[in-house]
Amino acid sequence: MSTIQLNVLRGDEDQGSTMVHYEILFEEGMSLLDALFWIRENMDSSLAVRYSCRSANACKECMALVDGKAGYLCSMRAKEGTTLTLEPLKGRPWVRDLTTAIE
């Protein structure tokens, strides 16, 4: 069984932040957004991430920093055996976890 490791910055402006480590099973073709959905559905339903592709058929809301570089979580593919750090975008008001305010 192959896994991926995600270090996700959790918290908010008022409470501060902490890096939380998740290890999940790797599935060929999974996006980072798929991995976060799996975490929410199976490990931690309180994980906050903004997206609208599943419910509103819209795009471009799942942007976050992955290893320090901005990208869309829905289009970034997980790679077997990797460890990635996910953080909210800088320069936007931080709401909670990977969610920032849309301006």
Rank of each mutant, 00 (worst) to 15 (best):
A35D: 04
I24W: 00
D44A: 09
L36I: 14
R77V: 12
L9S: 06
S2F: 02
G16T: 02
Q15M: 06
E23D: 13
L73H: 05
L86I: 06
S17W: 07
T18E: 07
W38S: 12
V49Y: 05
A58V: 01
W94A: 00
D67F: 05
A56D: 11
S46F: 05
D97V: 06
A56H: 12
A101G: 09
S2H: 07
G11L: 04
E41W: 05
M19F: 07
K60F: 06
R10H: 07
E103I: 14
D97Y: 05
S75N: 14
E28F: 14
F37M: 10
W94C: 02
N42L: 08
N7T: 13
L32S: 00
L86F: 04
F37G: 01
I39T: 14
E13T: 03
L86R: 07
S46I: 13
F37Y: 14
L84M: 15
S17G: 09
E28P: 02
V49I: 15
M63T: 15
G91L: 03
L36G: 06
Y22P: 08
K69W: 08
W38I: 12
L98C: 06
D67I: 10
D67C: 09
A78T: 08
T83Q: 01
L33S: 07
K69S: 11
M63K: 13
I102H: 11
D67R: 10
T3C: 00
G91E: 00
K79I: 13
D12G: 05
L33Q: 05
E13H: 12
T100V: 14
M1K: 12
T18Q: 10
I39W: 10
A56N: 15
M19I: 15
D12P: 00
V8T: 04
L33M: 08
Q5I: 12
L32H: 04
E87Y: 00
I24F: 05
P88A: 02
E103H: 10
G16E: 11
R50T: 09
D44I: 06
E41D: 05
C62M: 02
E27S: 10
V49W: 03
R92G: 09
S2G: 03
G11V: 09
V95Q: 03
V8N: 09
T99V: 04
L86W: 05
I24Y: 03
N57T: 13
L6R: 14
L32V: 03
Q15F: 01
E61P: 11
W94Q: 00
I24K: 10
C62N: 02
L9P: 00
S31H: 12
R92M: 12
M1N: 15
K90T: 02
E80Q: 11
K90P: 08
L98H: 07
T99R: 11
D44S: 02
L6E: 09
K90W: 13
L33V: 03
S75Q: 10
G81F: 02
Y22D: 08
E41F: 06
C74E: 09
M19T: 14
S75K: 15
M76E: 11
